[in-house]
């Protein structure tokens, strides 16, 4: 009997399917309704951010003293105006640019540096591992909003510094997750197998082990974008992030908080925007986790 005929038998149905694990995971994720809902929310806000000048009815900085604190549904100001007469809807649309950039930028910092430190620590161990883990322990000993505030205070209160601070303060989590997965993955037989074929440390670390450790990091990063957005809003609220007149959502809430009793919409709509975006990232993150690590489901 010829072997080729035989091997076809069990596998013909998936013959042209050169499906990577990522593609299969995407198919599973597509079936997860709440994750998809989260993704749509994110896409919606990304769309707003990218096309803000087209979508927004007004210039977000344009003040109009005559039209201050217009209530919602007062045409053409759909969501009303704030205490300087600026269109709230336009400010929220422009604000999505800032929030998303903050989210992605802060997460990129912690993702890249945190993972890198975790990867090296886990792979090599030794003195680098000992030192970096102690530093991480110290960072984790701080309440983490305090740590963020301390870093911003040191760097100076600007939006960029707020992003950097959030990124640094969240970095230990990524390091820990990455280190733990690397330690587990390092023991897998394929690592030994590749070593026996003469594969060097760099290729082992970045080409072989890293791709297998990405799953929990991706989950963490997705959820992290949401929390970074909340934190930057919090920092702006405290006056440590974006400075007026930037249309940043947290700042919008902060500067209008005294009107909450007579013009609640000025505070509420940016708040809803924050909730929606964060919800989007959380739903998506949870969905990705379900797909990548079914054990964590319940």
């Amino acid at each position: 009997m010829n072997p080729i005929k035989i091997f076809k038998a069990g596998n013909d149905a998936e013959n042209n399917a050169a499906e990577s694990i990522w593609y299969e995971n995407w198919l599973l994720l597509k079936k997860n309704r709440s994750a998809m809902f989260g993704l749509y929310i994110i896409i919606f806000f990304v769309f707003l951010a990218v096309f803000a000048p087209v979508v927004a009815p007004f210039d977000p900085y344009l003040q109009n003293i005559d039209l201050r604190k217009m209530t919602y549904f007062s045409w053409p100001y759909i969501l009303g105006t704030d205490d300087f007469g600026r269109d709230i809807l336009s400010r929220i649309i422009y604000g999505s640019r800032i929030s998303l950039v903050i989210g992605f930028f802060a997460v990129s910092i912690s993702l890249v540096f945190g993972s890198l430190i975790g990867l090296i620590s886990g792979f090599y161990g030794g003195w680098f591992d000992r030192i970096s883990m102690r530093v991480i322990d110290i960072m984790l000993a701080f309440p983490y909003i305090l740590l963020t505030i301390v870093i911003v205070a040191l760097l100076g209160p600007t939006l960029l510094n707020a992003m950097i601070a959030i990124g640094i303060a969240r970095l230990p989590q990524y390091t820990r997750i990455m280190r733990a997965s690397v330690l587990a993955e390092k023991e897998a037989e394929y690592v030994e197998a590749e070593r026996s074929l003469g594969v060097g440390n760099m290729e082992l670390m970045f080409m072989s082990i890293l791709p297998n450790c990405l799953a929990p990091i991706i989950v963490q990063a997705t959820l992290g974008v949401g929390s970074a957005i909340i934190e930057s809003a919090a920092l702006s609220f405290l006056g440590l992030g974006a400075q007026p007149p930037t249309p940043e959502w947290g700042l919008m809430i902060a500067s209008a908080r005294e009107f909450v009793s007579n013009a609640w919409w000025i505070v509420t709509f940016p708040g809803i925007a924050i909730v929606l975006v964060v919800l989007g990232f959380n739903l998506l993150g949870d969905g990705i986790r379900d797909v990548l690590d079914p054990r964590l489901k319940d």
Partner: peptide
């Protein structure tokens, strides 16, 4: 490294000895 080419190993577990992320 020069000797690795000439001496090879076949491992026990066919499920863990191949990197799952690679074609």
């Amino acid at each position: 490294k020069a000797y690795r080419r000439r001496m090879q190993m076949i491992f026990q577990d066919p499920f863990s000895s191949l990197n799952p992320r690679k074609k």
